[in-house]
Simulated assay, not measured.
Amino acid sequence: MSDGLAQSVLSFVDEELILNRGNVNAAARSNLVAFAVDAAGFDVRPVERALVAVGERLGAWFVDAVGPVTFYAWYDEQPGQLRCSVASVEPDDLPFGGRFRCVDDPAPVLALMAADVHPGVVPWADLREVSAEEVAGPDEQVEYSFPVFAVKLTR
């Protein structure tokens, strides 16, 4: 499974990538590739090497691009998917609605993935009702942030 996932991740460099500084969100969605995760027998090492290799290969491809371009990968817990994309922004400006933290090593992203024993499933026991007082308003800080492996592809 891990070698197959690693090969799939490596194929990201073959995708036709679109850069659109005027609409970064649309470009990032267009460049998005999601990989299903199988919790059984997951080995992070081949996938880790594949993500680093993709960053290096894309870096060689975009080295002369004008403006920032970033390759990034994260584990989306809700669907249980490893996701990769490219956007024409600095790593700290990636188009996420939630709080994230950039990491220069894919290990924290893959650790989340490896720890998920039921990818894409939230057990009923983990759910609870949220009162109106607990719902964060637009001015409130949310404590949770997720790791995003980010590689700046331009100088």
Rank of each mutant, 00 (worst) to 15 (best):
A114N: 14
P119Y: 08
G80W: 01
Q141D: 11
A132D: 12
V109D: 02
E143C: 05
V103R: 00
A107Y: 05
C102F: 04
Q78E: 14
P46N: 11
V44E: 11
D43R: 14
S88K: 01
Q141M: 07
P138H: 10
G120Q: 04
V86E: 02
V142R: 14
A34L: 06
I18Y: 07
E133Q: 12
E133W: 06
A60D: 13
P106S: 05
Y75N: 01
L82V: 04
T70Y: 00
P91T: 09
P95G: 09
E16V: 13
P106H: 04
D14E: 13
P46H: 07
M1P: 09
S11V: 01
L58K: 02
G41Q: 09
D3T: 13
V135R: 15
V86S: 00
F149I: 02
E77D: 13
S11M: 10
E129S: 12
D105Y: 05
V151Q: 03
T154M: 06
F100N: 04
G22D: 15
V121M: 12
E56Y: 08
N23D: 15
P147L: 07
L58M: 08
S131M: 10
V13K: 04
L10T: 07
L112S: 07
S8K: 15
A111Y: 08
F100Q: 05
R128M: 08
V151F: 02
S88T: 12
V66R: 15
N23L: 09
V103N: 02
L5A: 01
V63Y: 11
R57Y: 03
A36S: 12
C84S: 09
Y72W: 11
L5T: 00
K152A: 09
R49M: 07
S30C: 08
P106A: 05
S8G: 15
L110E: 01
L58A: 06
S2R: 03
P119M: 12
R83C: 12
P108N: 03
N20P: 06
F146D: 05
R29Y: 11
L17I: 14
D64A: 13
A40T: 14
A53K: 13
E77C: 07
R83D: 04
P108E: 05
S145Q: 14
Q78P: 09
R29V: 10
A27T: 03
E16F: 05
S131F: 08
L5K: 01
W124D: 11
G137C: 06
P79I: 02
G4E: 15
E90T: 10
V24Q: 08
V121I: 13
F35D: 00
L127M: 12
P123S: 11
G55Y: 01
W74D: 07
E15G: 03
W61Y: 11
T70S: 09
V9I: 15
P46A: 12
L110Q: 00
E129P: 06
R45M: 10
V9W: 02
G137D: 14
R83K: 14
V142P: 05
V103E: 08
E90W: 12
V109C: 06
R155C: 06
A27G: 02
R45P: 02
A114P: 03
V54W: 00
R128K: 12
L153G: 00
K152Y: 03
V148K: 02
S2D: 09
P119V: 06
L5G: 01
